[in-house]
């Protein structure tokens, strides 16, 4: 019973009610959408992300007032070509209309991705001013992918310690780590 349709369909003229409203409100933006398994994903450029998100929450036709999740994906070596190396994914839902929408924005790193340096290109405007609940999710994205959020009130790592030498969910970070455990300094009680 596995569906024969294996590739995602490009469907710019999808009938998700939100898409029309967004297109009307932002005629100058180049937006596109994909549909897979009945779920609509809106692709927004990084610069326009913040205003589009605010519109999606505030416009009565969209009313996507619930930010379900913020996460990121690393497409290094992904079999289908993507517009960028990283994607930040926002899962939105509407409490009143019971609709869902995924918003995605792509980023490209400007430097080596193996370390834990701050990349000036891997930065997105925060949505914590629209949904305060994004605070910890954005911190986790930073912790795991090194994507920072401009305007975030507390941009620190959340699960790993603050100078962990890599961003572990990037695809160039090996599953078993790079020996952090073996080389970790042991703090002794009687250390001077």
């Amino acid at each position: 019973m596995i569906d024969e349709q294996l590739a995602p369909q490009k469907d710019v003229g999808s009938n998700h009610p939100v898409l029309k409203a967004v297109k009307e409100a932002f005629p100058e933006l180049r937006l596109s959408a994909t549909v897979f398994r009945g779920q609509t994903t809106l692709l927004v450029s990084r610069d326009a992300l913040h205003q589009v998100m605010r519109f999606l929450r505030d416009d009565a036709r969209c009313a996507l007032n619930f930010l379900s999740d913020v996460t990121a994906v690393d497409y290094l070596g992904y079999p289908v070509e993507q517009p960028g190396r990283f994607a930040v994914v926002y899962l939105l839902a509407s409490v009143s209309l019971k609709t869902r929408l995924t918003v995605k924005t792509y980023l490209n790193p400007s430097m080596d991705t193996s370390g834990n340096a701050d990349d000036p290109e891997l930065i997105v405007d925060t949505v914590t001013d629209i949904w305060p609940g994004a605070e910890w999710r954005e911190r986790e994205v930073y912790d795991m992918f090194g994507i920072r959020f401009r305007g975030h009130p507390d941009m620190r790592r959340i699960l790993l310690w603050h100078d962990f030498p890599a961003f572990p969910l990037r695809k160039d970070y090996p599953l078993r780590g790079r020996g952090e455990r073996e080389h970790y300094r042991i703090l002794k009680r009687d250390a001077t």
Partner: peptide
């Protein structure tokens, strides 16, 4: 087995 290429929630 064959799996799709796509993203969903």
């Amino acid at each position: 087995w064959d799996t799709p290429v796509g993203e969903c929630y």
